Amino acid sequence: EMEYEEITLERGNSGLGFSIAGGTDNPHIGDDPSIFITKIIPGGAAAQDGRLRVNDSILFVNEVDVREVTHSAAVEALKEAGSIVRLYVMRRKP
């Protein structure tokens, strides 16, 4: 069973403070093209906020749908998102 969360982060000097993997051209798990959080960087915006978790998958960055995009398109969406970034994420319920 999945749960969904909308997380708004303010981009810090060091960016959003997380790493991603995945994409249609580089699936992270099997042939699932989802964009997954692979690392939360200590002291970064995501770590300070505390809600984003490793293995969360990002569905939307602001209004941009990143469910079926290449890795570089997801990176671009995050880069272009401005200083306030709304992430709509999905994760397995614990």
Rank of each mutant, 00 (worst) to 15 (best):
D25K: 04
N26R: 10
L52D: 00
L59N: 14
G82Y: 10
N13C: 03
A47N: 05
L9C: 03
V69E: 15
D25N: 14
F60K: 15
G30N: 14
P94E: 15
E6W: 11
F60L: 14
G12T: 06
G43R: 13
R91Y: 13
G30M: 09
L16G: 12
D31E: 11
V64K: 14
D31P: 12
P27E: 06
I7G: 00
I29A: 12
K93V: 03
S83V: 09
R53L: 02
L78T: 07
E6N: 07
R92H: 04
I41N: 13
T38P: 02
L87R: 00
L52P: 05
G22M: 04
K39G: 11
E6H: 10
G44V: 06
S57F: 07
I7F: 15
E3L: 09
A47V: 09
R86D: 06
F60P: 00
R67P: 00
I58F: 02
K79A: 01
S72N: 05
F36Y: 07
E63S: 10
T70D: 04
L87K: 00
L52G: 03
G30R: 12
N55V: 13
D56R: 00
V89H: 00
I37F: 01
F18V: 04
F60W: 11
P42F: 13
E68C: 10
E76P: 01
R11K: 11
G82S: 14
T38V: 07
I20R: 00
E80K: 04
T8N: 11
I84A: 13
E3C: 09
V89K: 10
T8W: 03
L78S: 01
P42A: 07
T8K: 05
R11Y: 11
V54I: 08
Y4W: 03
E68Y: 04
S14A: 11
L59H: 15
I20Y: 06
K93Q: 14
D49R: 04
E10L: 10
M90I: 07
S34L: 14
E63W: 03
A73W: 14
A45M: 14
I20K: 00
E6S: 09
S34H: 15
L78E: 01
A47S: 12
F60N: 15
H71D: 15
L52T: 02
Y4G: 05
S72A: 14
E76R: 08
